[in-house]
Amino acid sequence: MNRVLVYIEHDDGVIAETSMQALTFGGGLGEVEVVSVGETALGGWQIQHPLLTDYAPEAIAESLAQLVGAEMPGVVLAGGTERGNEVMAHVAALLDLPLAANVTEVRPSGDAWDLTRIRWGGSLLEEATLTAIVKLATVAPHVIEAANFPFRAATVFTPELADELARTMVFERVTLSEGITLTTAPVVVSGGRGVGSPEGFAVLEELAGMLGGAVGCSRVVTNNGWRPHSDQVGQTGTRVAPNLYIACGISGAIQHWVGMMASKNVLAINNDAEAPMVTKADYAVIGDLHPILDAIVAEVRRRRAG
């Protein structure tokens, strides 16, 4: 049976959903062994070292590479997250092995893997062949539903780490206040070029406030300096998956679409009935967005008063 090491991310023992998905994905490829870093015993391999007091990509990867060298598994997986991709890239560089990032499917073919992975943030797929003694991959988020995983007793693995590896550990951590953020908001009211100006976003702010949501925007808007980049939804901005995504004056370029395609419902407000955002949306209102938004805000207010 193929041994599959899965590096999981956790916060004081609370395992990231993407890591649970990677465990489930790994279960389809062989016998899964959990690998975690830190004081919390989660079962499987527990990497412990005095140097590892916070996230430290180089040191964690060095630990993983040593574990791989000692155990020689057939596969090492992680979730396709910022940290998962980063740690696995270091592991791949240390072991001089190929790495397939954001894999959606694996079809073993003899000693090699035929696999599918995402490109362009998910708007394109690539079929590739991975040939390596130890196969390294990260699992694209949300391609598989996480199943329960039977965690077993933990075995401590103590790597040998040079002091120098602390150079890339988190030096300082500033916790942000938890308000309604783009990623947690149940409604995102998002504006594009069609909003016309920074001031034009006032009515989007108002509607978002009424619905307990957050304001987002497209890349054109941040490039114009109308909104901060932290509001940008898209491939190079934030990925959102709200209950309702309201796209106001957004044409629906790929770069934007991949950032909000996981939304449960999409409402497009656009004066162009042929805009890709309109044709891909669940609901649409056609026309000039400002009078429409003003009317929606007034209607919400009227119903709340009545």
Partner: peptide, 28 residues
Amino acid sequence: GGLVMNRLLTPAEQKTTTTILGRGPEAA
């Protein structure tokens, strides 16, 4: 290296039918 691209493909598009709620402010 050990990762060879064979071909690209477009993901199957989930076909949605768009419900037009109306035109202009009357759609509110």
